[in-house]
Deep mutational scan, measured.
Amino acid sequence: MGFKLLSKLLVYLTASIMAIASPLAFSVDSSGEYPTVSEIPVGEVRLYQIADGVWSHIATQSFDGAVYPSNGLIVRDGDELLLIDTAWGAKNTAALLAEIEKQIGLPVTRAVSTHFHDDRVGGVDVLRAAGVATYASPSTRRLAEVEGNEIPTHSLEGLSSSGDAVRFGPVELFYPGAAHSTDNLIVYVPSASVLYGGCAIYELSRTSAGNVADADLAEWPTSIERIQQHYPEAQFVIPGHGLPGGLDLLKHTTNVVKAHTNRSVVE
């Protein structure tokens, strides 16, 4: 069995187990497998329904001669939608809004960016022009300005110390501490036991640490421990890039980060 097929099978099995364990909360999309990078042309966006009122959005972007996937989250909030992270750029984010209108038909009224990198804030200006209120932590807003990236308009308070959590509509926002970046936030959907790890969490097929220019490698494993301790009931975990899975993604990420750190020390 090929690795790609095995990865998709694991996603399907995880979703099936969740649907059985929580039949009222989960209505997993039966329309197909989780979209992969090879299936999404740059400039297009796919939506994948995880649970009743919960979707991931998947886009792709060219970077350094390669094409990478990027995940975000959409959560229903009454007759409105909360968006977590842009679709990595203005063109993708405009396509995301169009796809949401086509498939869901509810307005996106608020959006949260989970850290300051372009795959999370690139497209904020498109959201703002569409009347979406954009939010991020003060740290993310400051770092985005320093980096020359787009800056969300509103500040999220109460997320300055490791372990801080605040309720934001249908989700809980959690600051686990520094990891992929010093400002990275985690998003949890309690009604569906869905954990969105953003770039602080890796997919299972990833074996290298990737972009760690703004990471705190020493603190990252401790931050992941905080996530595990705060959300032990999480059933569906979405990484910032690639295929979702279960809580095993947290341990896998820790292993990859520690291996990278150990290699760096040896070198």
Results as ranks from 00 to 15, higher is better:
residue 27 S to K: 03
residue 74 I to S: 06
residue 13 L to G: 09
residue 162 S to A: 08
residue 110 R to W: 14
residue 116 F to Q: 11
residue 19 A to L: 07
residue 110 R to F: 00
residue 168 F to G: 02
residue 232 P to D: 05
residue 101 E to K: 03
residue 176 P to Q: 11
residue 98 A to I: 00
residue 102 K to G: 10
residue 44 E to R: 04
residue 113 S to Y: 14
residue 143 L to Q: 14
residue 157 E to A: 03
residue 99 E to M: 02
residue 257 V to H: 14
residue 260 H to Y: 04
residue 257 V to Y: 00
residue 165 A to C: 10
residue 136 A to R: 04
residue 161 S to C: 09
residue 166 V to M: 07
residue 253 T to M: 02
residue 121 V to Q: 15
residue 25 A to H: 15
residue 201 I to S: 13
residue 254 T to A: 08
residue 241 H to E: 01
residue 83 L to W: 00
residue 21 A to T: 02
residue 65 G to H: 00
residue 98 A to W: 06
residue 265 V to G: 09
residue 267 E to F: 06
residue 242 G to W: 04
residue 195 L to R: 01
residue 188 Y to D: 14
residue 84 I to Q: 00
residue 234 A to Q: 10
residue 111 A to C: 07
residue 136 A to H: 05
residue 109 T to R: 07
residue 10 L to C: 08
residue 11 V to A: 09
residue 135 Y to T: 02
residue 230 H to T: 03
residue 241 H to P: 08
residue 247 L to F: 01
residue 69 P to K: 12
residue 184 N to W: 01
residue 123 G to L: 02
residue 257 V to P: 14
residue 227 I to M: 07
residue 125 D to L: 11
residue 34 Y to E: 09
residue 79 D to K: 13
residue 201 I to Q: 01
residue 83 L to A: 14
residue 151 I to H: 00
residue 69 P to W: 03
residue 1 M to G: 07
residue 104 I to N: 01
residue 113 S to R: 00
residue 246 G to I: 07
residue 40 I to N: 02
residue 259 A to Y: 10
residue 15 A to Q: 08
residue 226 R to Q: 04
residue 63 F to N: 14
residue 192 A to T: 07
residue 202 Y to V: 08
residue 250 L to A: 05
residue 118 D to N: 13
residue 106 L to A: 06
residue 69 P to G: 06
residue 92 N to Y: 01
residue 88 W to V: 03
residue 91 K to R: 12
residue 248 D to R: 08
residue 212 V to N: 11
residue 264 S to R: 05
residue 105 G to Y: 10
residue 61 Q to I: 08
residue 151 I to K: 15
residue 144 A to F: 07
residue 95 A to P: 05
residue 190 P to R: 09
residue 95 A to N: 06
residue 117 H to W: 00
residue 67 V to F: 13
residue 112 V to A: 05
residue 234 A to Y: 15
residue 84 I to K: 00
residue 144 A to L: 03
residue 8 K to V: 06
residue 12 Y to D: 12
residue 174 F to K: 11
residue 194 V to M: 02
residue 73 L to M: 05
residue 90 A to R: 13
residue 112 V to W: 03
residue 197 G to A: 08
residue 87 A to L: 00
residue 96 L to H: 00
residue 158 G to H: 11
residue 190 P to K: 11
residue 77 D to V: 05
residue 193 S to L: 10
residue 243 L to R: 11
residue 210 G to W: 09
residue 136 A to D: 03
residue 215 A to M: 06
residue 61 Q to S: 05
residue 148 G to P: 02
residue 32 G to Q: 01
residue 13 L to S: 04
residue 88 W to E: 00
residue 25 A to I: 05
residue 169 G to M: 13
residue 34 Y to R: 09
residue 6 L to S: 10
residue 97 L to R: 02
residue 89 G to A: 11
residue 145 E to L: 02
residue 41 P to F: 07
residue 162 S to V: 06
residue 192 A to R: 08
residue 229 Q to M: 11
residue 175 Y to S: 10
residue 111 A to F: 02
residue 48 Y to E: 04
residue 230 H to Y: 01
residue 113 S to I: 03
residue 81 L to M: 12
residue 122 G to P: 14
residue 254 T to W: 12
residue 128 R to H: 14
residue 224 I to L: 09
residue 245 G to R: 12
residue 98 A to E: 15
residue 105 G to T: 08
residue 194 V to P: 04
residue 209 A to C: 12
residue 202 Y to E: 10
residue 218 A to M: 14
residue 23 P to L: 05
residue 162 S to G: 10
residue 47 L to K: 14
residue 160 S to H: 04
residue 187 V to K: 01
residue 9 L to I: 14
residue 33 E to G: 06
residue 71 N to V: 05
residue 16 S to G: 13
residue 191 S to E: 13
residue 258 K to A: 08
residue 81 L to V: 13
residue 158 G to E: 11
residue 105 G to F: 04
residue 13 L to R: 06
residue 179 A to L: 06
residue 206 R to P: 13
residue 152 P to E: 15
residue 67 V to N: 09
residue 79 D to Q: 15
residue 54 V to Y: 14
residue 256 V to T: 09
residue 89 G to N: 02
residue 77 D to M: 02
